[in-house]
Design a protein around this nucleic acid. Sequence first.
DNA 1: GTCACATTTGACCATATGGTCAAAGTAACG
DNA 2: CGTTACTTTGACCATATGGTCAAATGTGAC
Lengths: 204, 204
Amino acid sequence: MASEQNSTRIQKRNRATILDAALDVFSQSGFNGATVNQIATSAGLSKPNLLYYYPSKEAIFTALLSELLDVWLAPLRALDPQGEPIEEILTYVRRKLEMSRDMPRESRLFANEIVQGAPRLNDTLSIDLRKLVDDTVIILDNWMKQGKIAQTHPKHLLFSIWSLTQHYADFEVQVRALMSPQDPMDGAQEFLDDLYRNLLRPKG
Amino acid sequence: MASEQNSTRIQKRNRATILDAALDVFSQSGFNGATVNQIATSAGLSKPNLLYYYPSKEAIFTALLSELLDVWLAPLRALDPQGEPIEEILTYVRRKLEMSRDMPRESRLFANEIVQGAPRLNDTLSIDLRKLVDDTVIILDNWMKQGKIAQTHPKHLLFSIWSLTQHYADFEVQVRALMSPQDPMDGAQEFLDDLYRNLLRPKG
DNA sequence: GTCACATTTGACCATATGGTCAAAGTAACG
DNA sequence: CGTTACTTTGACCATATGGTCAAATGTGAC
């Protein structure tokens, strides 16, 4: 009879199991392609049992998205205006690349949703992410003004980091097919380091 | 009773209409999310009529993919080993960027499919595309050996061009949300030109 | 143990889906 | 006009899907 933060060990365990199963299924098939049954089976629960914890497929999806958004954007928030600019940016790139390696499901979850028009994410994009990006642009602009990094388009710079790093998760099948028998990400970090050092190095 | 290349004006028109409608629907919802009814309605046909021209949803999809693959890969095939290396590559980048602007549905069609593991495209990736990429890598390697472009990882270079350019089509909703009120691709070409000139310029 | 509450489930429902089929309508062509 | 082949459709089917519900089972506190 507590207010809302009821825990109940079993609930905690099952909700976590469900979200992990949902991440598997949604990231592989997208919202439309995924079925409640797949998620339930993958979580080791019956369908009605699943729907006892989350009232609908959509509820699972939004719970998953909101749970992941923070961790997904954390590396960008960690950009330190006081740090050494080029190293700060390269650190960000490396973290994003690590996330593509270690959390490919999360990356594909967002990719699926955004490619299909982000119908369940539009507010997040145009409000929260927008705010974060605007803040970051200010930092980048300052670095450019101070001559710490070369002049370039700050937003396109961010887009490029996202697309280049997430590519290894989102298009993994393709990258793997073309890189095999090597590891798909073999040499990726060196390449990106090189790319951004050349772009950002202040020019005489 | 002709062999197989029967035309029948009506067939040609309807097959084209269907594929265009299918491109709309599949690129927006992916294979699983799309329904035969949506495609039929969008094509102005009844469902049984649609299935008279293509025997199944899968048949529409594969017909669409195989029709588009050539045009999609054409810019890469156009890379000229005899041309001026940096300009050749920049031309390729520009063409890909134009395709993201002019053919975003095609880009998203492939993106959807690949993100979801390319279950209906795996052979194409590991055979045809692989061959094309291997050929291109030889060209790039030669240019590097001759000192015409800086040393870099040829495959990751290709991946980077794909991801950077297709990003503007595949993640258009996100880019638009973050660029508005400006045009989503405003400044993109200059940014990419700059990026690749800095990367590829031969270093002392 | 027992009682209240949390959890789980089989059976069920309305709707959507991919696909079929026989019959009706339309072109083409002599 | 009549015949043949092409095109279109309403009705239909089996299956899958998201979701509900009442009843059964488990669990923790006393």
